[in-house]
Write a protein that binds this DNA or RNA. Sequence first.
DNA 1: ACCCAGGGTCATA
DNA 2: TATGACCATGGG
Length: 227
Amino acid sequence: MRVLTVYRRLYACHGPQHWWPGDGPFEIMVGAVLTQNTAWSNVERAIANLKAAACLEPEAIATCDLRHLGALLRPAGYFNVKARRLQHFCRWYLEQGGYERLRRWPTARLRFALLGVHGIGPETADDILLYAFGRPVFVVDAYTRRLAARLGLVAGDLSYEALRAYFEQALRRETGYEDRPGTAGRRRLVRLYNEYHALIVAHSKSVCRPRPRCSVCCLARHCPAVS
DNA sequence: ACCCAGGGTCATA
DNA sequence: TATGACCATGGG
């Protein structure tokens, strides 16, 4: 089955997802860290706490007392870990000159630098690249791996990088969009990767219904036909 | 009382 | 390099 076909079916079933849920690049980056292995509803509470404490800014987080920051992040779980990770990230972010500087970096350099920040792994880095910086990077998560494996597109033990390369190459080939800076093809790829990842998450969290149903409906997490 | 969630790091073999 | 432990809250 073509990867683009899967996308069309997911879109037909679930519609546009309007990701990333959040206001502005920095809030998106914060959300990307906070949502690590955590339900988004919990992240929303933590972000609300940060806003209410006037602490949803890089300077505030970078200089904040870790105990205080942890208290604000408590609803998101792993709050001690995430307080340290957020602070590491914000200090790095400010050292590099913030968004206006980082947005000038080529994608490969930006990705490599993000992966060097303590607490930023492949998925968090790619969330940031795609949703905060608008780069054509396909985000892989546990849902993506399970979906691709169950459809028989790839082996189940493929590495993160291999899976990302698979989706990016397949989608570039099947759409014919070219990935060159400043081109319409680049922007289309960004929109496609954005919506695709969001749809995989939405689909995986959805419950399989008799009607209406999409052609990949039996791959939802809670579908009785799968487990 | 379970299980899981839009991961990542670290210690161990 | 490949597992396992650990982090922790909130909803089903």
